[in-house]
Design a protein around this nucleic acid. Structure first.
Lengths: 220, 220
DNA sequence: TAGATTGTTAATCGATTAACAATC
DNA sequence: TAGATTGTTAATCGATTAACAATC
């Protein structure tokens, strides 16, 4: 079988947004849309939308456009929203708590099965129906319950200290909120980083740049 | 004065990471580094590092490399870490709480001055030394305290409902955790989006792709 | 059929990498 | 001075946009 050429990460990162917009359209009772109209609503070019979608197949129909709900289903399939990935979360601070309680993992293709925290006061208490476990239970838990993904809502030092054990537990995929760099220490891992501090600093640069342009305008 | 050509967002987004690595090096007592060695530590090319830095000036020295602490200071200056931007946060749920308590705004160029939440049970209580206010106080607060940035840790519907008022309050820059699309409704705004759900779904795609390659390997 | 809109190829644009002269 | 490494120009690569024939 021919190896399917991998789709670029830029395209993949746009898929969730398409999925969201298509959901909104469906909710609004719209069942047909052209790439041009979708592009106007989303602030993209129609070309880009057609190129993106055609990485995965021809989902539209000439002269008609795309069927909203069937395109949405196609994207759900591409993203693997039905394939429930067994997932654990480590670090039940405010951020971990926010993630456990506000994200609907089931709807996103994940099955959150266990949460860990090394705070003895938290261990044994429950969150979203799960009993918080001590990280010393990691190995035992993972050998009994094969796990594909770990969410790390812990500080960098804790992530560094745990990384080797998580790899030993067979986990290769991480949603990483810490500033620990998995990619540098392990090959053949999948890491999606969310670096809030980096995002904040990027915002800072852009705000200062914006304020400079405003100042210049006033001076003119 | 000639208009400085704006630096591409790809470069800007790498600056916080450079800043972090340079901090680590400084902490480790290293005070000199070449682009090649830094590139190996960070998993980039030396060319890219030199190109990135030279968007802002020649900070290195031929035959020597870069001075760690002075390069770090240059990047701090470029990011505007000294220029404290007055900032408010709206939505003191778990996510807002995590952000208020775990990010060091002062060190990142921001001055968090007020927090708002429409939950009557939270209003009047304090967090990080600030008394949580009702959003009805927004206009009054902003006219008394000029504010450049708003952090939105609220659901999409709440963000939609508040957007016009925030714009009226003179705020044009947003750290947006909601799924509301500012860019589509307002021009001349700076929006840094953090879409956790999108990030999670992107991870899902990548994990499934990874699992497929592993399966193929086993079959061979 | 005529009109609309896709799928896809070609052109453009921008970002990354390579190369090397300048220079510490 | 010789060696090392930058700053910068040129080459490559990839992503976005434009164009249009295919076709519903």
């Amino acid at each position: 079988m021919a190896v399917k050429p991998t789709v670029s990460i830029s395209v993949i990162r746009r898929l969730p947004r398409y999925y969201r917009f298509l959901g909104d359209l469906a909710k609004a009772g719209i069942n047909r849309i052209s790439s041009r109209e979708l592009s106007e609503r989303m602030g993209l070019t129609a070309s880009q939308i057609r190129q993106d979608l055609n990485c995965f197949g021809g989902f539209g129909q000439q002269g008609y456009g795309y069927n909203v709900s069937s395109l949405r289903e196609e994207i759900a399939r591409i993203l693997g929203l039905d394939n429930q990935l067994n997932t654990i979360l480590i670090g039940v601070g405010n951020l971990g708590r926010a993630i456990v309680s506000h994200l609907d993992f089931g709807q996103r293709g994940f099955n959150l099965t266990a949460v860990f925290d090394n705070n003895p006061e938290l261990c044994g208490t429950t969150i979203a129906g799960m009993t918080i476990m001590d990280p010393s239970m990691l190995e035992e838990y993972c050998s009994a319950h094969p796990t594909q993904v770990a969410i790390l809502t812990i500080p960098r030092t804790a992530a560094e200290a745990l990384s080797e054990r998580l790899i030993q537990c067979g986990i290769r995929c991480f949603w990483n909120f810490s500033h620990y760099d998995f990619n540098l220490d392990y090959e053949n891992v999948v890491v999606e980083n969310v670096h809030l501090t980096d995002s904040l600093m990027t915002l800072g640069y852009r705000v200062n740049e914006y304020l400079r342009t405003q100042q210049t305008k006033t001076e003119e």
